[in-house]
Amino acid sequence: MELLNKLLNIHSVSGDERLMTDFLIEYVNQRKSQWKVQPEFYFGGEFHDCLLLKFGTPKTAVFSHIDTIGFTVRYEDQLVSIGGPEVENGFDLVGEDALGPIKCRLVEIDGDLFHDFPRAIVRGTLLSFAQVIRINGGFIQAAYLDNRLGIYNCLKLCESLENGWVVFSTYEEHGGGSVPFLLKFIQETSPIKQALVSDITWITEGISHHQGVVISMRDQFIPRKIYLNRIIKLALESGIPFQLEVEGSGGSDGREIQHSPYAIDWCFIGAAEDNVHTPSEKVSLLDLDSMLALYRYLMKHL
């Protein structure tokens, strides 16, 4: 779990993903010689803070967003949400401005959000939930399992992947925007017709802990049924535990794939969590293991 611990402790609020990008670049450069296939690696100014890895001759791309929810400091100790964080008086927040490190608490007053740091924080500073990682009883609990587990899944997939794109996107938690230019580059470089979204979904009345990874049949957006049927058939053949999700809200990078000008099938597949968008997101380790296993299987057989 050393890699996951490192991922969970990197600040990467939407719009400020640079620290995560730098970590991923260093990690790939250190580890790629040990992987089954050496990928072509794309990053830099034209990709903003996104990264792309191309293994062999891709048929499928896996997308994982590297940003998190958080808060922007406004005026008079006010905070503005980034994405959709749950808010509760007393949540610990951390960050850093030009004057030094920041650790404070979230204060909600009549629906407005504030911090209690003893000095003014430089306006525009981004704050995130303080990290406390707990692993016990078959669960992991921490802030930002969404989407650190999706990133973790992709990095583990890279170890054995022979053919495919692995794509680390930005901005997903607050409106998206990076996937369109990433898709354009992919389709001009080594085009694909199908994609998987490595992200984290929700525990609901139909989705439980310890029952396997979730294959989403729909959220606010609807994957093409013929592609979904292929994935479910392969999942059944694999023997890996999985659950089927049907929701009417929520979204992911799949939204932007569906809205793109390219005929690319997509499906969201990921472990489910409790306490969504809080400092104590909770995921079953069994479900995480099945997520890792199913991605390995699908990328060999799709």
Rank of each mutant, 00 (worst) to 15 (best):
L52Y: 03
E108L: 10
T72P: 10
I121P: 15
I135L: 11
D97C: 05
G56D: 01
F117A: 06
S12M: 07
K54E: 11
I133L: 11
R134C: 07
T68C: 01
G95R: 04
G56W: 00
F63W: 10
S14N: 00
G15Q: 05
Y42S: 03
K103Y: 00
L51S: 02
C104L: 07
V28Y: 04
G44H: 03
F129D: 13
Q34G: 09
H48E: 15
Q131T: 15
G45M: 08
V132D: 04
C104F: 02
G44F: 07
G100T: 14
L8E: 07
F117T: 12
Q30H: 14
H11E: 14
P39I: 05
L106E: 08
S12P: 02
D67T: 13
N9E: 10
I133S: 01
H115K: 07
H11P: 14
I121S: 05
G95Q: 11
F43P: 03
T60K: 02
I109A: 01
G137A: 13
N89D: 14
V73T: 14
D16I: 13
G45F: 07
S14H: 03
G44E: 09
V73C: 05
A98I: 15
L127A: 14
G84Q: 12
H65T: 06
A98C: 09
E40M: 11
H48S: 13
I10H: 04
C50E: 06
K103D: 07
F91Y: 13
V107I: 13
N89V: 05
D116F: 08
D92A: 13
F63E: 01
D77K: 14
I82A: 00
N9F: 05
R119H: 11
I109N: 03
V87L: 02
L51F: 07
V132K: 12
L93N: 08
I135H: 02
R31S: 05
R74A: 15
V37K: 00
S33L: 12
F43R: 08
G45L: 07
F91M: 14
V122T: 15
L79Y: 04
Q78E: 14
I135A: 09
P101T: 07
E76N: 15
Q34M: 10
L51E: 06
S14L: 10
F63K: 04
D92M: 10
N5Y: 09
L126V: 15
R31L: 08
K6G: 02
R74W: 04
F71N: 14
Y75K: 15
K54Q: 10
G124Q: 09
D77P: 11
V80S: 11
L51A: 06
R123G: 15
L52S: 11
C104D: 00
E108I: 11
G70T: 14
F55T: 09
L8H: 03
D116M: 03
T21P: 04
I82P: 03
T60W: 00
F55D: 04
D112R: 01
G124R: 06
F71Y: 07
V87C: 11
F91I: 13
A120I: 07
P58M: 05
W35V: 03
I66N: 01
E108G: 01
R134E: 15
K36T: 06
K36M: 11
D92L: 12
P101Y: 13
I10F: 02
C50I: 08
F71M: 12
L127F: 06
G95T: 12
